[in-house]
Write a protein that binds this DNA or RNA. Structure first.
Lengths: 124, 124, 124, 124
DNA sequence: GTGGTCTAGACCACG
DNA sequence: GTGGTCTAGACCACC
């Protein structure tokens, strides 16, 4: 389900949050899907259960999960996070683009990047 | 010259590196300008000299400064860093755009951001 | 594990880096071996932990170690450094040979040195 | 006569020693040539006279110069230094070759370097 | 216990 | 006065 990179400088719980967020945002995990239990995921990743617990709590605060006591953790519906996530990404992109411009990156170079990411091949 | 943000969770030396890098990349500090001495900047920021020393060493490794022992630290010429900085920014932008696409941001939204940043018709 | 040479004028952290680099490059420390902790090596060498910390950071930047925060430092796999190390050595050798030639050393003398080092007929 | 590299990490007096040594060893300065006075060289290099004085003293100790009080410093005859210099270089080369071999450099790669430095073009 | 950061001192070489 | 190194402490986050 997840592969941890132990060479990554970030704390493990943060990596777990990040990977799971991408799975949810990317649509790999649909709404109301049951997440693996804290303990089972901890075993799977060879990690302390506290670490997974912490990740789940963060994901819940971010609106990606909801918890039913005694039942487990479940993926929240898109309406809970889609809008705010897009806004957040747009803001981050804006700041990064500003920094890129400041560093001497041209508009053309960025358009190339944009094309590479959204390569048209799809509706042709 | 610099204002530290104590709410920022990043280490102080990293903040210093970041701010100075922006000043240099942004052109506020010209090549061969003498930087404040390690000790004086430490006093100005109410910080330990070791912390500033560390920041200066990092900036030197990144190619933004050159050091003449016993004389001081000086801003390196653009040729030392311009190219690599642009490459680094392009790579970062690529990754951010990928994440943005993943999160559901449309190409149109990003084009708007791009235009806002590189607005060529300020009062047209 | 390491013996410091107090007559050596180089800074301690550099000596530590040098010795450990040789141990790794020479194959005495295999990939993924756990290095002694910063504090324990500091005690062993009767040196301040900061000094060891600095050495480990340098070795990490050079690709010889990888760090897992809260777990320790580990020897990186050969692929991380073998190529660049060979390139570096070749460049250094080139410069040294130039200086040797300049000083009047003949090609024959150098061929003798080369044979001595790579003596392929130990007991032939 | 000499060009200093202010970005060089080594102390200036050491750079001066090194450059002058090469000029003498390389044959650019013949035996009994009068060296520029301490003060004039200091002015030429925009450097403190003490620095040049220190360099001259070192060169004298190394056998490259001799001093005649009130007259100046002169280049010593080859017999004073040629032999020891060659020995020193051979020793240094030996150590470097050992380290190169240890790092995984092959004999063939070193032979290539050797050929590049002593390119045959001369007696062909 | 581990690495990461920081402080408050100190000494040295260099110019 | 400048950078470079080092010590002896301390606190923090992570696991």
């Amino acid at each position: 389900m997840i592969i941890l990179d132990y060479r990554d400088k970030r704390p493990i719980y943060e990596q777990v949050v990040d990977k799971l967020e991408r799975l949810i945002v990317g649509g790999a995990l649909e709404a109301d899907t049951k997440m693996p239990s804290v303990r089972s995921l901890a075993v799977e990743l060879s990690v302390n259960p506290n670490t997974i617990q912490r990740a789940y709590v963060m994901l819940e605060q971010m609106g990606y999960l909801y918890t039913i006591s005694g039942r487990g953790n479940f993926v929240a519906p898109e309406s809970e996070w889609r809008g705010s996530k897009v806004q957040e990404m747009l803001k981050e992109c804006h700041e990064m683009l500003l920094r890129a411009k400041e560093a001497g990156v041209t508009k053309e170079q960025l358009l190339v990047q944009l094309s590479k990411v959204y390569e048209e091949a799809e509706h042709d």
